[in-house]
Amino acid sequence: MHELAIADSIVQIADRHANGRRVTKVQLKVGHLRQVVPSALAFSFELVAQGTSVEGAELEMEEVPVTGSCRGCGVESRLKEFPLQCRACGSDDLRVLEGEELFVESLEMEEV
């Protein structure tokens, strides 16, 4: 359950930026390669947020699909499953461009 530790960290980040305001929404970017289970994260988030300025806030998760660029031919591919393969030449020597994100993008808050 790394979702619990991740949720804990998200709440800490949001609470710090809120600076006393009430947080209504947290926007999160999650790369597909992070193996985060959205339902487990949502559940953990709700739990951990209790008693903080983030309590009751909506957690909006945007999942980022995996893309990579081929070290051989330079073509970019959208990748759905392993092995990660270049759609042009079939090489598996790819540099992952997207899909490893895990960050808090923005917050919505209420100024009282």
Binding site: R21, T24, F103, V104, E105, L107, E108, M109, E110, E111
Partner: peptide, 8 residues
């Protein structure tokens, strides 16, 4: 309501 970019 305010929106704040965080990128953390």
């Amino acid at each position: 309501a305010v929106k704040q970019v965080v990128m953390e």
